[in-house]
Design a binder for these strands. Structure first.
Lengths: 253, 253
DNA sequence: TGTACATCAGTGAACGCGCGTTCACTGATGTAC
DNA sequence: TGTACATCAGTGAACGCGCGTTCACTGATGTAC
């Protein structure tokens, strides 16, 4: 979890500071476990305190309240997902756009299947009564879509993202939204391809959510890996990514 | 909510039976409201009893326990969604496949935006500690996918669903799953088109979930209707539906 | 190096709250003869 | 039509539980002179 510190203290941390940091890490880790078993809505400071071997009021030394712990867990999960996606993508040559796309999708799915409760916290129904503080969570929360867009934009600039045709024209109000996004992210892709990218993004998470949340009936798909692989290939097509061109095999998850 | 009763009692219901049925309806309705405000994890029999104006133990006359109420709410929500989708689809001529597809997607989205908490119960993170009884929920729970598949299969039989090419071949383990599904649902569509249909299904719910659960950053899309409309057109393409052919305009949501 | 003080981690009791579920009960509504 | 009985709806008290959060406190760890 490389957390780019804002570095306000040039001095090395004192033993006390290090102990404190470790305890906060422990709290987040225990909260993670608790989340996995009982779900976000049932996340309880008292339970975390119990697991930490400490009286319930003690955790208030480290965490302002329950909301704060939820926020920490949210950021932690977003960053772990972001790190794994980044690692998977950059393990392939920059020019292998199709391979990188597949790696991105597979990394999301792999993390989601390994961490279903944390995935649910990020992409499932909102936790009742909790609103994530945008100023702290949007950064980590946008890492995957940034990675995807960077990938597609790179392919576009390399002439390897072609409008597949079909679909509908982009109407003006939508074009305005897309222009704002393109400027904000410094992209070059066309409106139509940008819209396709957004659809591919939501579709990827739709496929993952159905699998993780058990929306496919039990036993409907005995070969979920192959299903997802097939979906990824179709989504690459939908995005406009040109098919494999010798730059590397797509790793089937 | 036309609930095809299993009709074991030929006699008309006694006043007592009618009062009882009305009370159960009230309980489900109040549970629905409670769900909307506090989320599924916080659904409470005591709260429902309070709203019903009755002492907490009284609801146990009507509902075995909390799980049972959740199941009732699940079935109720699935059926309302299914009814609205069926109504929207059958409002258009059977031969207007593209129009019906668009109507189906728009109906799902409309219901989800109107009933975010119930949508979350059906398609969000699973409620911790609760497992839906398959024998009671799979029927209502599969109405949308059945409607979608019936639509696509109808288009296929009419020669109006064409494989768009691209993507990948269907590998044997996946083909086995698809064959089972095709037989189970009495379909005719090819493997590739069936797989596309499944992707379109998950993608539709992915797009709706992102919007309902607020995954798009606040203010990212000022024109969500147009975005969804655009996505629907792209998904129709992905499914292999031939473009509009005079059979009717697509109703933009 | 030693002492006085400040900081901090953790304790334990308490506040008020809501929950699911059980149980013996009171009355009212229906049914059988 | 009238009476005796069974069924059912709803009551009220209780069980044991967990929760978030506050507060005055004890000791240990650090810091300043």
């Amino acid at each position: 979890m490389p957390q780019t510190a804002s570095a306000p203290s040039p001095k090395p941390p004192t033993p006390r500071e290090r102990a404190r940091a470790r305890t906060i890490e422990d709290i987040v880790r225990l909260g993670r476990d608790h989340l996995a078993v009982h779900g976000a809505a049932a996340l309880s400071l008292r339970a975390v305190a119990r697991d930490l071997g400490v009286v319930s009021s003690a955790v208030y030394r480290y965490v302002e309240n329950r909301e704060e712990l939820l926020t920490l867990l949210l950021i932690d999960a977003y960053n772990e997902l972001g790190d794994e996606v980044d690692a998977a993508v950059s393990a392939l040559p920059a020019a292998d756009f199709a391979g990188r796309f597949s790696a991105l999708g597979s990394a999301v799915r792999r993390w989601a299947l390994r961490e279903p409760a944390r995935y649910g916290l990020l992409f499932g129904s909102p936790v009742p009564g909790y609103r994530a503080p945008a100023e702290r969570t949007t950064g980590p929360g946008t890492r995957v879509i940034y990675a995807l867009m960077a990938l597609l934009d790179g392919a576009y600039r390399a002439g390897r993202l072609v409008d597949p045709g079909g679909g509908a024209a982009v109407v003006p109000p939508l074009a305005a939204d897309l222009a704002r996004i393109r400027d904000g992210m410094g992209l070059a892709v066309s409106d139509r391809l940008l819209a396709r990218g957004a659809l591919v993004w939501t579709s990827l998470f739709g496929a993952v959510s159905f699998e993780v949340f058990g929306q496919y009936g039990a036993g409907t798909f005995a070969a979920p890996d192959e299903l997802f692989s097939h979906h990824l290939a179709a989504l690459a097509d939908l995005a406009g990514l040109c098919a494999a061109d010798g730059a590397g095999e797509r790793p089937a998850y």
